[in-house]
């Protein structure tokens, strides 16, 4: 009897609507975030991640209200990400009812921000989002690099070294997105997931690329992830959370059923 592996549906929210695009283009509408979050809660999701993908300052209030509305109805952990750049941004989201915040670009430009945030609010609520892309050529030793701006800008930072550094700075968990795989539904990048999961002691959420239930199983079994994040396979009714959990449990993964 151990710790259950987690299934985390992800809501990418643009201007108050859940959307899902393939590698950040071809956006499809998937509904009202409060309704979608409630549905996943009822289905037995283990957590919910809310990513504000507009993240422009004029939409901040909409995001705060939506987070408040979700937190008033959904009693499982809620992580909010997108545009978290200052201590004040974190405080605002925690006060709105988020349990954790996810920091991405701000950590890359200013790693000290992660240290400061963890000291102020505790590591348990600081998720560091890592967007990685494979940069090694076929035949070379595997190497992944951190990318920013939705996978467009390379940073020259080695993804595994970055994870080790962020853990030292006080990150409580990683959300690891493979930018090659995001939205294309070919499965997670298991190589980078396993490399990071084995290099650090904090939990890793595999993200980007889940297209079927075997991908979720592989993320845990081969990628050594502690949790799997998925969006499209749940949003458009291909699969439900209980169906996914049962499928994983049947393959020997401990789940909360």
């Amino acid at each position: 009897m151990g710790l259950a592996k987690r299934i985390i549906p992800c809501l990418d929210v643009d201007n108050g609507r859940v959307v899902k695009g393939v590698q950040f283009v071809d956006i499809r509408d998937a509904g009202d975030p409060v309704e979608v979050a409630r549905r996943y809660d009822e289905q037995g999701a283990d957590e919910i991640i809310f990513l504000d993908i507009t993240a422009s300052s004029d939409n901040r209030d909409t995001t705060v209200h939506t987070v408040e509305a979700i937190a008033g109805e959904v009693f499982i952990p809620l992580t909010v990400g997108g545009g978290i750049r200052t201590i004040e941004d974190i405080r605002t989201m925690l006060n709105a009812g988020a349990d954790k915040v996810s920091i991405n670009t701000a950590a890359v430009f200013n790693p000290e921000f992660v240290r400061e945030a963890a000291q102020k609010f505790g590591s348990q609520c600081i998720v560091v989002a890592i967007d990685a892309k494979k940069v090694s050529k076929p035949g070379e030793k595997d190497r992944w690099e951190i990318f920013t701006y939705g996978g467009r800008k390379p940073t020259g930072i080695d993804a595994v070294e970055w994870a080790i550094k962020m853990e030292e700075y006080g990150a409580g968990e990683f959300m690891l997105t493979s930018m090659d795989q995001d939205g294309v539904k070919n499965g997670y990048d298991l190589g980078v997931t396993k490399a990071i999961s084995e290099a650090v002691v904090i939990p890793v959420i595999a993200s980007g690329g889940a297209g079927n239930l075997d991908h979720l199983v592989d993320g845990i079994k081969k990628g050594k992830a502690d949790a799997v994040l998925a969006a499209s396979i749940f949003h458009f009714g291909e699969h439900t959370v209980p169906e996914a959990k049962q499928y994983m449990a049947d393959r020997g993964i401990e789940m909360r059923l």
Binding site: M1, G2, D46, V201, P203, R256
Partner: peptide, 20 residues
Amino acid sequence: GRDLHEDGEHLKVPHMGWSR
């Protein structure tokens, strides 16, 4: 501790998630 084990498996710390 950073070296927590159970049934031969290395456990993550923090203990984060759903336990019985």
